[in-house]
Design a protein around this nucleic acid. Structure first.
Lengths: 328, 328
DNA sequence: GTGAAAGCGCTAACAT
DNA sequence: ATGTTAGCGCTTTCAC
């Protein structure tokens, strides 16, 4: 089923059909009607492959993220979707599974479709991936993180600063024996940066991290619970627990409540991300809003504007004290 | 940057370059090396648009789902990804936001890229969407649900039967005053089917649903908590709460525990889906595993096999009693 | 307002 | 083992 078939059915040239279906140029209302009618009855679906090759235009934006299971990224995609709504552009998602080799392949695959732009999560990539991004000749934006050296444009927060800011909040509230609970995966560069920022922030206040614990696998209530139990059994003197993500913090919160601990006085907790699904826990966890929807929206806006900048857009995460930290 | 450039740089024909880059046909090791070298130094990325047009092959599988925010669908995608791993095929995701008009557009858009197959969530579509799916000339599989009339192949569970089975489990455990808590959106056809099956299952045991409550918006702990509070204030005699999803059930569980209710004796709870993140709640919620990863895997296997069947593959959800129902 | 010709960058099929 | 030719289904450009 090609343009030719529709053209024959409507007794016009392929060119006229093409014009009608793209609302381009002048076509008389009568002809236009005939063409629509023919296309509809034949069930014609245009071949975008041919169209893209001929016009050298592909209205797709490639989006490369580590995973869809981590709720952070669906939220970024939501922001992207919002900004692209009403434009010609459509997002196409690929996942790297937190593996830079895999990410390189996905970027290669995406660029081979000649998209109108590329959004990639993070600043850590293989050299080959960076080279491809640099030579893409379309807007490329790295999102989530601004602690590093972007290939071109970047939109995100400083995770190092977020960790540091959280340390300041905790110290200001009088907590002293502080533990960190996070992922052992070095692939989660952003969590690592928060961890380092956190340690640095504590150090500025003359405090050393009392203990820390790391997990393999996925975050979740069970993971948070187990880590918390293990850490508190090892170091019962802790009066604050800082988690790499709210999902783990929620598990820790439930554990501490079950044990009858007095939150936030005996022990305080904080996480990261500000996940809406967790509203409704017995207490609201102290956290920082990672601005992920805004990040997606801003990145997509650069695609729409077709901007080939290397501007770095730093957003500020917002501290949300919730109920699990003492007031200052 | 085209094949031509690489061919010139390596002093061979475009055809030879094409063969090398696709590992096709016989090329001498010497030539092969020269070509790779040229491609690499030039940073050549093949143009899949042109390749697809010429070969009439697109190694993409379109996947149309309602949303990425509902954790059900990332899990389906995970199953699809697993089955496609190691094949030529790549998934491309589009979302309909639970809107059939939007779904129709997404399907149209996907088909216009001439994918090797199409996976669509649900059995409810516009007539135009059904027509496109029927005429696609590639494997089309509807997933999640088998209660209805599939266009072609289908892989899923019977949500009607799932609701009915849950009713049987609850009745067998001696609960009598049963409430349902779900979504008011008629767009969530599968939850509606569970609801109807549940009512029918209770009716078979001579029981009428004592009360029910519906929410707008997204599921989550807060939603589950509020619905539960409202329902129990209205009908304090309820001894069982059946939720449309585990996320809401979790909110309900936390509410009931806070109120000091004796679970599962004074009141029982059950949800649907079996979300792994929720392992770690104070009690494991009774639920049914919606088999979503298996569904994704099976559907993708049909794509790999390039099967144009209209087979309906019905999977059986597994009942998981957890800690929130009495033992039988 | 409509049509004819050329060609986008590849690959299939057929040489050699 | 390598090259040549034709053409995939559209859009661009130019002609009428």
């Amino acid at each position: 089923m090609t343009l030719r078939d529709v053209a024959d059915a409507a007794s016009v040239s392929e060119m006229t059909v093409s014009r009608v279906l793209r609302n381009r140029g002048d076509v008389s209302d009568k002809t236009r009607e005939r063409v629509f009618e023919a296309a509809r009855t034949l069930g014609y679906v245009p071949n975008k492959i041919a169209g893209a090759l001929a016009s050298n235009r592909v209205n797709l934006v490639g989006v490369v993220i580590p995973s869809l299971s981590n709720m952070v990224f669906p939220d970024v995609l939501h922001g992207i979707g919002e900004a692209l709504e009403g434009t010609e552009l459509q997002p196409v998602v690929g996942t790297s599974q937190y593996d830079l080799q895999q990410e390189e392949k996905v970027i290669y695959e995406m660029l081979s479709w000649r998209p109108s732009g590329l959004i990639v999560a993070g600043l850590e990539h293989t050299d080959a991936a960076r080279a491809m991004m640099r030579n893409a000749c379309v807007p490329v934006v790295e999102v989530m993180d601004v602690d590093g050296d972007p290939v071109a444009a970047a939109v995100g927060i400083s995770h190092e600063a977020a960790g540091r800011a959280m340390a300041a909040e905790i110290v200001a509230r009088g907590y002293k024996n502080i533990g960190y609970l996070g992922s052992s995966s070095i692939a989660d560069a952003r969590a690592q940066k928060r961890y380092r920022g956190f340690e640095a922030g504590l150090a500025e206040a003359g405090i050393t991290l009392a203990d820390s614990i790391f997990y393999d696998g996925t975050s979740g209530f069970g993971t948070g619970r187990k880590m918390t139990q293990a850490l508190l059994e090892r170091t019962p003197t802790l009066d604050f627990l800082y988690y790499n993500t709210d999902m783990n913090a929620a598990g820790g919160l439930l554990y501490c409540m079950e044990k009858g601990m007095d939150i936030p006085n005996e022990i305080g907790l904080a996480g990261f991300n500000s996940f809406e699904v967790l509203d409704g826990l017995p207490m609201r966890i102290a956290t920082m809003d990672s601005q992920r929807e805004t990040i997606g929206r801003r990145a997509a806006e650069l695609m729409v504007a077709n901007e080939l900048t290397d501007e770095v857009m730093r957003l500020e995460p917002e501290f949300l004290p919730g109920d699990t930290v003492r007031s200052r």
